[in-house]
Design a protein around this nucleic acid. Structure first.
Length: 280
DNA sequence: CATCAACCTGATCA
DNA sequence: ATGATCAGGTTGA
């Protein structure tokens, strides 16, 4: 199936917002709507091999986002971001499944990308349904049914949080559908009620699963960029607010671009690290 | 309300 | 080789 879209698969699937995409010789392989799919870049978008509906693909890649308009808006807000946007065309935010996104970001706490991937994969290997080349991300029920085997996944102090979250979803104590109906502030607060979810993870889930564009997650990397490039330091709330009022109408996209720019070492080339550091 | 040590695990660095 | 430090934070005091 051919998908026409303004998108670059490499930064979009490889930037760390989703944790199960792997670049193989054939293209990007992952699981979408419980089907194994392989995505290959084309000039006008990408080709998708696998049993998934076009509707699901378009939804996952946030087809409605007008990337040109978003990049233009962001670029007008800030010179550094303009250079980042120009250097990284086609980076899209994804709309991830709320359950999987929340569960994986509970695992992502205080761990590097490699470790996050290893934890997510081990959870899929241990509990997920066999889909052929890959396994599905497990359902809450599948995790609870095999909870006595959870130790093999080596989740550390995330283990109890992960199983407890599965139980809360299964029991209806956490209603992700209802959280999806909330505005950004409500969504964020509701997510923070869940043990193991703090400011940063709540913002990631608000952005990557619930599509709240005003979310500006501040992790260690973003914090370093705000300090080194913008000379800003402060508490989580202060830094997130700085991001929200500084980068146009799409703070979430701005955050993802800044994050990716750091990944490709643009910060050193652009900042020079000469600006004074101030507090808010 | 801000600060801070403790926390599982695995990788890197001295 | 073996210990310190750190990595996409959160919690609880």
């Amino acid at each position: 199936m051919e998908i026409a879209m303004d998108v670059s698969l490499d930064p979009t699937l490889g930037c760390g917002q989703a944790h199960r995409w792997r670049k193989t010789a054939d293209g990007w392989q992952g699981v979408l709507d419980n089907s194994v799919v392989t995505l290959t870049q084309t000039p006008g978008g990408f080709r998708c091999e696998g049993a998934v509906s076009k509707r699901k693909i378009l939804e996952y890649f946030r087809h409605g986002d007008d990337l040109a308009a978003i990049y233009e808006n962001i670029s007008a807000s800030d010179g550094y971001l303009a250079s980042v946007a120009e250097a990284c065309p086609g980076l899209r935010l994804l709309r991830q499944d709320p359950w999987e996104c929340t569960a994986t970001y509970i695992l992502a706490v205080n761990a590097n990308v490699k470790r996050i991937i290893s934890m997510v994969e081990s959870v899929c290997d241990e509990f997920g349904r066999d889909l052929g080349a890959l396994r599905a991300f497990p359902t809450p029920g599948e995790i609870l049914d095999g909870a006595d085997r959870i130790a093999v996944c080596k989740l550390g102090y995330r283990e109890k949080r992960f199983v407890d979250f599965a139980g809360a979803v299964e029991d209806g104590d956490v209603d992700l559908g209802a959280i999806g109906e909330m505005d950004y502030a409500g969504c964020r607060e509701a997510l923070k009620e869940i043990h193991g979810i703090g400011d940063k993870v709540a913002d990631c889930i608000s952005l990557f699963a619930f599509g709240h564009m005003e979310s500006f997650p501040v992790d260690a990397r973003i914090k370093a960029i705000l300090r080194d490039v913008y000379g800003v330091e402060g508490t989580y709330a202060e830094l997130a607010d700085f991001g929200r009022r500084s980068f146009g109408d799409y703070p979430g996209y701005a955050q993802e671009l800044l994050y990716h720019a750091k990944a490709v070492s643009l910060v050193q080339a652009q900042s020079g690290g000469s600006r004074p550091v101030s507090t808010l």
